[in-house]
Amino acid sequence: MDTQSLAAFLTVAEQASFSRAADALELTQPAVSKRIANLEGRIGARLFDRIGRRVRLTEAGETLLPKARQLLVLMDDTRRALANLDHRVGGNLTLATSHHVGLHRMPSVLRAFTHRYPDVALDLRFLDSEQAYQGVLDGALELAVVTLAPEPDPQLAVVRVWRDQLRFVCGHDHPLARREGLSLAELARHPAVLPGSRTFTRGLVTDRFARRGLRPNVGLATNYLETLKMMAAIGLGWSVLPETLVDGELVVLRVDEPPIERPLGYLFHRERTLSNAAQALIGELDSAADPA
């Protein structure tokens, strides 16, 4: 069973489309279809149902999916282990980072890394932290630098590098802008603009309110912190943002609560062999870490 056919199968399953899979693999759609047909011929079962433009896994496809993923991760791991033998820092490094971490924490790290290791080809992907976690678990990503989960999966090695201090903020014209000694109960009476409900950051905020028996009144939500900043600045609600985003467009609310801390760092799968390139990047991240 060739790995190219398995990779095509996984990509079609993830994209739920032959055409999108072809784009992702930089192949023609007939080439992808041929690889799937070859795989189906070897297995002796149909892997996808094609109904119009919709593509769904058959029962055989569902059964093969986790095994195919494991096989490709094992092959990738073996290639890295062999490549590491010459101790050269080069080759490909598939790395994910969240938009905020990538824009505000990673530039100096990546600048130093690419200057020191010019032979590394970075495959840098901007993903929500939650997606990056899943990508590392699935084996699609070797390393991720993101907001860390409150309770990380035990299969992952997770290392904190930075701490984000999150501040309660609003626009200058918001009715709470000039209030002193605000309580969370008072905040909860006003609409908020916060990260999406399934994000790690939203969980930190709701947990803080829950300790007081409260729930924030969320009017609007988005996973993009820069968008939240804009919405708060124009008066659509109060928000909670990292200090790195707080500027003259916003007012820091005087809330009788300590700042919420958000841990940022890197993670990788404990069962995978890290490439020399990934180990080198981890060295750069450790050097950039906040003091303990």
Rank of each mutant, 00 (worst) to 15 (best):
Pro195Ala: 11
Thr63Glu: 03
Asp76Gly: 10
Arg50Gln: 07
Ser129Glu: 00
Pro66Tyr: 06
Ala22Leu: 04
Glu14His: 08
Ser19Leu: 12
Leu264Phe: 07
Gly213Lys: 10
Leu274Pro: 05
Thr147Tyr: 10
Val120His: 01
Thr11Lys: 04
Ala81Asn: 06
Ile234Cys: 10
Leu65Gly: 01
His174Gly: 15
Ala144Met: 03
Leu110Glu: 04
Pro216Gln: 14
Asp173Gly: 12
Leu124Met: 06
Leu245Phe: 08
Gly90Glu: 08
Thr94Val: 13
Asp207Cys: 03
Phe48Asp: 09
Leu57Gln: 02
Arg189Ser: 13
Leu220Gly: 11
Ala45Pro: 02
Thr28Val: 09
Ala132His: 03
Arg272Val: 12
Val161Gln: 08
Ala221His: 13
Phe168Glu: 13
Asp77Asn: 14
Asp128Trp: 00
Leu225Asp: 08
Pro259Gly: 10
Tyr266Met: 07
Asp123Pro: 00
Leu74Asp: 13
Leu264His: 05
Gly219Val: 11
Arg262Ile: 02
Arg163Glu: 15
Leu184Asn: 05
Thr227Ser: 13
Pro150Val: 06
Thr222Val: 07
Ala140Cys: 05
Ser98Thr: 03
Leu187Ser: 08
Gly265Ala: 07
Ala278Pro: 05
Leu220Ser: 13
Gly213Ala: 12
Ala37Ile: 09
Met231Leu: 15
Ala31Glu: 02
Val252Lys: 11
Ala112Trp: 10
Glu249Cys: 10
Ala60Val: 00
Ser197Leu: 06
Thr11Gln: 03
Glu62Thr: 08
Val158Leu: 06
Leu253Ile: 07
Thr206Trp: 05
Ser239Gly: 13
Val252Glu: 15
Leu65Asn: 00
Arg35Phe: 03
Thr114Gln: 10
Glu243Cys: 07
Ile234Leu: 08
Glu40Trp: 11
Leu214Ala: 13
Gly237Ile: 15
Phe48Arg: 09
His104Glu: 01
Gly102Trp: 01
Glu151Lys: 12
Arg105Ser: 01
Glu40Gln: 15
Thr201Arg: 01
Leu72Val: 02
Pro118Ser: 07
Ala221Thr: 11
Val89Asp: 04
Ala132Asn: 04
Trp238Cys: 14
Ser183Ile: 10
Gly91Pro: 03
Asp207Trp: 05
Ala140Trp: 07
Arg80Gly: 04
Asp23Gly: 12
Thr114Asn: 07
Asn217Leu: 15
Leu39Phe: 10
Ala37Arg: 15
